[in-house]
Structures are given as structure tokens and as C-alpha cells.
């Protein structure tokens, strides 16, 4: 039961992007469309779960003094695996996400979870934590991407929503739009939580 609660918690109350404000660089940079957000979120989730598994299983072997370099090697390896596989089998997504895939290595969300959670917990909770955080991150990127795509290009997942007459709000696709959409979504979440209390 507590495992399910953990997942729920990391999706809303401790959402990586909207609550912990971790991993904002990719969250702001690649979310020009819902599809990009989803792809980036899933790639990050994969790396997060895999690195949590390895870090948690090696937590008794890795001496504290070299834990950060060890974590980074593990994370960087999984990122490279994702990058190679994506280029081989999802070439279009690879082109869209471009340089942001290698940058998953420096996504502080992943190192943060390895350091704060996986290196101190057993395998199962570490996997659950990775899955939960990953889902939360993916959802956040998807929503951010969907909002920006909807207003910035008038489409959702590539399908036209508003019809021909819609004049896209270009700002939303450009970098400032990321900050504006992010701020509005954060405000919305805070408002929702405040109402509930």
C-alpha cells in the first residue's frame, strides 16, 4: 500500500518539476510540443529507473568517498544507451530531441534521486521511487508541452485543434513561453492545493 502511496506522492505532492523544481533545463527547453515532452519524459524515466536499480544494488559496494563519480558513470552509461537506441530505432524523435538527450546526464533529478533515495534504500523501494518520479516528470513535461503546442501552433500531438482560422501565439513556442506556461501551471497547482485545504 505504501508503495502506491509513494508513487502518488511523487506524481503530485513531490512532483519533480512542479514541486521539487528539479530538472527544469530539459523541462523548459524541449517542451515545444506534447510529443517532445513525452519522449524526453520517457527517456528520462528509463534512465532514472535503471540508475536507481544499479545504484541501489551496489549501495553496499560503493564506498561513500567515490559515490558521486560512481553514480555519474552509471547514469552516463544509461544515457548513452538511450541515445544509441533512440537514434537506431526512433530516428525522428532523436532528431527532435537532439542535444538534450546527452544532457540527461546532468539532469539533477536523476543524480538527486540516486544520492537521496536509491543509495539508502533497498531495491524495490528504489525502483518504485524511480517509476514514480519518472511518471511525475513525464506528466509534467507532457502537460507543459501540450499547453505550449496548443497555443503556440494550434495543434495537439500534431492534430489541428482550432481549425484554419487560428492565429498561433508564437511566443508560446519560443523560450519565454516556456517560463510563462511553467509559471501559470505552478500557480494553478498552488491554487488547487490552497482550495482543497
Amino acid at each position: 500500500m505504501s508503495l502506491v502511496n509513494n508513487i502518488k506522492k511523487s506524481i503530485w505532492a513531490e512532483n519533480a518539476v512542479f514541486r521539487l523544481l528539479l530538472g527544469l533545463c530539459p523541462a523548459l527547453a524541449v517542451t515545444t510540443s506534447a510529443e517532445n515532452g513525452l519522449g524526453m519524459g520517457l527517456a528520462t524515466t528509463f534512465v532514472l529507473v535503471c540508475s536507481n536499480i544499479v545504484v541501489s544494488s551496489l549501495r553496499k559496494v560503493i564506498p561513500p568517498k567515490v559515490r558521486i563519480p560512481s553514480f555519474i558513470v552509471v547514469i552516463a552509461s544509461f544515457v548513452t544507451i538511450v541515445q544509441l537506441c533512440m537514434e537506431a530505432y526512433f530516428y525522428d524523435l532523436h532528431k527532435a530531441l537532439g542535444i538534450f538527450i546527452p544532457l540527461i546526464v546532468v539532469n539533477c533529478l536523476i543524480l538527486g534521486r540516486a544520492e537521496a533515495f536509491a543509495s539508502k534504500n533497498k531495491l524495490l523501494p528504489a525502483v518504485v521511487d524511480g517509476v514514480g518520479m519518472g511518471i511525475g516528470f513525464t506528466l509534467a513535461l507532457f502537460v507543459l508541452g501540450a499547453v505550449r503546442e496548443l497555443f503556440g501552433s494550434g495543434t495537439l500531438l500534431g492534430y489541428s485543434v482550432f481549425g484554419e482560422g487560428f492565429q498561433p501565439l508564437l511566443l508560446m513556442i519560443l523560450p519565454p513561453g516556456a517560463f510563462i506556461a511553467m509559471g501559470l501551471l505552478l500557480a494553478g497547482m498552488n491554487l488547487f492545493d490552497a482550495r482543497k485545504k
Binding site: 551496489l58 559496494v61 560503493i62 564506498p63 567515490v66 560512481s70 552509471v74 552509461s77 544507451i81
Partner: peptide
């Protein structure tokens, strides 16, 4: 030793 083993493992997988 530990760091070498980890990097060697990573190199092998990659």
C-alpha cells in the same frame, strides 16, 4: 578498485 570495476562494467555494456 571499485571505481575501476564500475567503469569497466560500464564500458563493456556500452
Amino acid at each position: 578498485l571499485v571505481l575501476t570495476l564500475i567503469t569497466a562494467g560500464a564500458g563493456l555494456v556500452l
